[in-house]
């Protein structure tokens, strides 16, 4: 099993309009997959198809090497989820909701409920009816419910909605812990990049129902680190000066006029000065801080498509 969740040419039409078109998603076992895209891009629809709540118009979802059909419900035992916003039986208390959930999931472990509530810091509200919960508390309880049965796959749709900064930080740690300590695979959607980039191993960018990029964070970081770009007429000599006189080894000669220096501790002016003094003509030198945000904004606002 290379991928724990995979979609092949997944397409969903609502009233003749394609909400999701030709999406090929690849989620590896044990990773945190960040699902990034603006509101209404089709993230929720894809997650609903993965949870088998709606059926694809065409294409397929493969989970644990098994193709989802209208009667594959056994698989759901190994999955936990929050889709859109968490829904509870409002008149019941937090604990009662979780108990009910465990019963339906066929999971019997009294301690699990307590520890799940502990993890999301809702222990003191366990006996309170959910109708009195704030949005943030419901979100926390939703996560507790999704993880209480220790599923192998966790599908979380916008899990930090309604949380305060403190809560967001707690959740980030919690998700990382679930991935590391329990080996859970997490598929987390969000429209906020900053939240995804810190935890995800792989990011899928979706726009207008199409998956426009699926890339590992390591690769993005490699592509998008900050650097100083230097243009000169003599790269050979420049490279020598940089290496010897400035003792920088972390640089790359791109072509016969461009050098990228990844050591940012040194001021570009300093480099220029040394080069000029050594008789190397500097055509231009500037610092590029191509942040991740720029990268994704470029992706989302048109630009690169991979189909």
């Amino acid at each position: 099993m290379t991928y724990i969740i995979q979609t092949n040419h997944l397409t969903k039409d609502f009233q003749g309009k394609a909400v999701v078109s030709n999406v090929n998603l690849h989620v590896k076992k044990g990773e945190i997959y960040g699902f990034l895209g603006p509101n209404g891009a089709g993230k929720t629809s894809i997650m609903r198809m993965i949870m088998n709540l709606i059926k694809p118009t065409s294409g397929e979802v493969v989970i644990f090497d098994e193709k989802l059909t209208s009667s594959s419900y056994e698989i759901l035992k190994r999955m936990g989820s929050i889709i859109e916003y968490p829904i509870f039986y409002d008149q019941l208390t937090a604990v009662e909701n979780l108990e009910l959930h465990c019963e339906y999931m066929g999971y019997y472990n009294k301690n699990a409920i307590k520890s799940a509530l502990d993890l999301v810091k809702l222990k003191e509200y366990e006996g309170k009816a959910v109708k009195d919960f704030s949005l943030g508390m419901k979100q926390r309880l939703g996560v507790a419910r999704a993880i209480v049965t220790k599923p192998e796959i966790l599908i979380l749709d916008e899990p930090i909605n309604g949380l305060d900064p403190e809560g967001i930080k707690e959740f980030r740690n919690l998700f990382q812990m679930l991935s590391k300590d329990y080996g859970m695979t997490l598929l987390i959607s969000s429209h906020i990049l900053g939240e995804i980039e810190q935890i995800a191993n792989t990011i899928g960018v979706i726009k207008n129902g199409k998956l426009i990029e699926e890339v590992s964070m390591d690769q993005i970081r490699l592509q998008n680190t900050e650097y100083i770009e230097l243009k000169t007429n003599d790269v050979k000599k420049a490279a020598f000066v940089i290496n010897e006189n400035l003792s920088i080894s972390n640089f790359k000669v791109l072509d016969d006029s461009t050098i990228r220096i990844y050591n940012l501790e040194i001021h570009p002016g300093e480099i220029a000065k040394k080069l000029v003094l050594s008789g190397v003509l500097v055509e231009s030198i500037n610092k590029k801080d191509n942040t991740l945000e720029d990268y994704f904004l470029k992706l989302i606002n048109g630009g690169v498509t991979h189909d």
């Binding site: 949870m51 088998n52 709540l53 009667s71 419900y73 056994e74 698989i75 759901l76 035992k77 999955m79 989820s81 889709i83 859109e84 829904i87 509870f88 039986y89 339906y104 999931m105 066929g106």
Partner: peptide, 15 residues
């Protein structure tokens, strides 16, 4: 109406 049926249908039980 409350969409709690969504939750019910994420359980490993035939609809």
């Amino acid at each position: 109406k409350n969409k709690s049926i969504d939750l019910m249908f994420t359980y490993p039980i035939s609809r």
